[in-house]
Nucleic acid binder design. Sequence first.
DNA 1: ACAAAGTTAATAGTAATACTACTAACTCTG
DNA 2: CAGAGTTAGTAGTATTACTATTAACTTTGT
Lengths: 226, 226
Amino acid sequence: MIQEIPGNVRIQVPEQLFLKDPDSSELGKRIVKNAIDMIYELGFENFTFKKLGQQIGSSESTVYRYFENKHKLLVYLINWYWGWIEYRMSFAIANLPDASDQLKAALKVVTEEVVEDSSFSHVNEVLLYKIVFSESSKAYLTKDVDNENKQGYFKSYKRLCERISSIVLTINPQYPHAKTLVSTIIEGSHLQKFFSIHLPSLTNCDKNSCDDTDFFTDMAFSLIQK
Amino acid sequence: MIQEIPGNVRIQVPEQLFLKDPDSSELGKRIVKNAIDMIYELGFENFTFKKLGQQIGSSESTVYRYFENKHKLLVYLINWYWGWIEYRMSFAIANLPDASDQLKAALKVVTEEVVEDSSFSHVNEVLLYKIVFSESSKAYLTKDVDNENKQGYFKSYKRLCERISSIVLTINPQYPHAKTLVSTIIEGSHLQKFFSIHLPSLTNCDKNSCDDTDFFTDMAFSLIQK
DNA sequence: ACAAAGTTAATAGTAATACTACTAACTCTG
DNA sequence: CAGAGTTAGTAGTATTACTATTAACTTTGT
């Protein structure tokens, strides 16, 4: 069940990722909405600003007025996604007094498949989830990653990992691999989802119900409690 | 310690990945050797056949005679890498009667950093390892993955995972997540290596001694023996 | 020995992509 | 309603991925 997000909340994205805030105009929102549709349809490599311009009945350079290049647009989308996940996680763990319950709830939000569009925004979260698990590593697997990291391109992701790691450390302050564990779980869960669809011989997950939440939750607690 | 590979052994790569076997000529070997150097130097995105042609004192189209495009060249290199790893793994587990010892040895080969060039071939394994952990997921994260999979582009990788999974199942035939566990470990180990260098806040691994073999070995045995 | 056949590699392209400079038009402010 | 600022479209350029053609060299059969 996806947490309903109230109308007065916006997912914040680091402003160095856009030239003009796509959230500030109708055209900007259409750019983001259609970018998600098209990256999902075509894959990131085959997606171009020219095609996007055509799709929104405008021109290539219009898109360039919002985003410097398609790589930054991808990074923008991924930051939006992690911001959204962190928001949902905050709700999921709110008022849970026990750290183990918090970790369970957090891992559920992070590893569970997104199947429902929360429709609180112009963003289609179901498609964005599919983009994230099949394209998001391209955001950091570049030669420019160190520079981009310095400029805050991965802020949202790092903050989310940091928050979950701190729950782990609440459960066991002596556990020395909290960050390694959390990043392995988050990326691993996306990987399994991708494998279940495209390379099924590499996973035990089923295409239709890739339920790896149990697997990764079990992994976390087995390793922490030692 | 890297297993010395005798001169009469060749790492086999599926032949649909090249137009002319680069192992069959001096020029082909120079193409592969320099491709590894340049992909490492420039990153896969900035690497082009034109630049490679210049590097080897030849032309772009010469490279095209060996490889259909740069994506296939990357897939070729990655298949070579996994073929090489499987070869080393075979040696590492040979004559070990106990399945748990076999798994330990296999995970060591798969997760340990490659720091020594075995110099049995024209391939620089240290650089190739760096390419694999920072570029290899681009080989399958494409829109054409299903088709490429059918054509055997990921053969070597799948065979390696299959072999390690079967060791897991020897230890515990009831364990239902053998394949998920193995692919999570292999990809996770590369991810941690990348993070330790470029996004250190996402890992507890150290840049200089990213020793995640213990972490992943512990993970495997904790989950299997339940 | 040497013509025919096959192999190899360089030249010179094309189409598509990523990105930019410039200009026209519209809008907001005093 | 003049002038400043904003927005978006046209028309480019440089680079990239890839291909068609041709020239030259090597091998093979008689």
